[in-house]
Simulated assay, not measured.
Amino acid sequence: MDRKSYEKQLVGERAADYIRDGMIVGLGTGSTIAFTIKKLGERLKRETLNITCVSTSNQTSELAKSLGIPMKELNEVSHIDLTIDGVDEFDPQLNGIKGGGGALLFEKIVAKASKSNIWVADGSKEVDILGAFPLPVEVLPFGSQHTARAIREKGLDPKLRMDGENPYRTDSRNFILDCHIGKITEPERLSQWLNALPGVIENGLFINIVGKVLIPEGDNDVKVIGK
């Protein structure tokens, strides 16, 4: 296992310790969260944990169900106590970019429904200013070229995400435009502008959502950033 994979496992497994008996838990999507889900599956085998989980993607649902983790649809629960998810990039204000795995819409819906949110990340995801990671924007296929043109005129350099020779499709069957920006100096303003654009479903800027971020520290420890 290389260093980055080890760091993902370290923080992913540690995040599972935040899950308590009686919780309704949101499970994010991605390679780091996969370690959280597997660790939770192990805990369920050796502990008496009465929990219910809500997924942010088909991929996560399949993994969780294969490990015997009780799952429900978001509309079947009244609230979510805690959501644990990965992040592609986060800044000192704990704002972040998500959507590298294509699940940004469901991830944001679940995060907004949660009382508390934790992100897990390897050390490379901590940055001074957002924007080095391309910002995913989920758009309707209908008129997507016109939506991309409007975004391009804003200077955001959108690229249609591909899956082989065909456009990548989200779980909602939408397209994703990855916007190569470089530096995002006003993330909240940019998020509002994007979401007001006809054809845009949601963008990957997660602002004032997360309370804690877990990142590796040293060889075997985890640093908690936030409250």
Results as ranks from 00 to 15, higher is better:
79 H>C: 07
160 L>S: 07
128 D>W: 07
91 D>Q: 04
132 A>T: 01
77 V>S: 01
97 I>D: 03
151 I>F: 05
155 G>E: 08
100 G>T: 02
180 H>W: 13
136 P>T: 07
80 I>W: 00
75 N>R: 14
131 G>T: 00
81 D>S: 04
138 E>W: 08
124 S>P: 04
120 V>D: 06
99 G>C: 10
129 I>W: 06
101 G>K: 05
74 L>M: 08
167 P>W: 08
68 G>N: 05
91 D>K: 07
159 K>C: 04
177 L>M: 11
170 T>M: 08
128 D>E: 14
174 N>A: 03
129 I>T: 14
94 L>Q: 01
130 L>C: 01
135 L>A: 13
135 L>M: 12
78 S>A: 14
109 I>K: 00
71 M>D: 06
87 V>R: 00
169 R>L: 15
114 S>R: 02
67 L>K: 11
163 D>N: 14
78 S>Q: 10
65 K>M: 14
144 S>G: 07
166 N>G: 04
96 G>M: 15
116 S>W: 13
160 L>E: 07
133 F>E: 00
163 D>V: 03
147 T>D: 10
85 D>F: 07
74 L>V: 12
132 A>Y: 01
99 G>D: 01
142 F>L: 15
83 T>C: 09
145 Q>G: 01
88 D>L: 10
128 D>M: 11
73 E>R: 13
172 S>L: 14
154 K>V: 00
65 K>L: 15
87 V>A: 15
69 I>Q: 00
66 S>C: 12
68 G>L: 11
108 K>M: 12
83 T>Y: 04
146 H>E: 11
75 N>Y: 15
106 F>A: 14
178 D>W: 08
171 D>F: 04
174 N>F: 10
101 G>Q: 07
149 R>A: 13
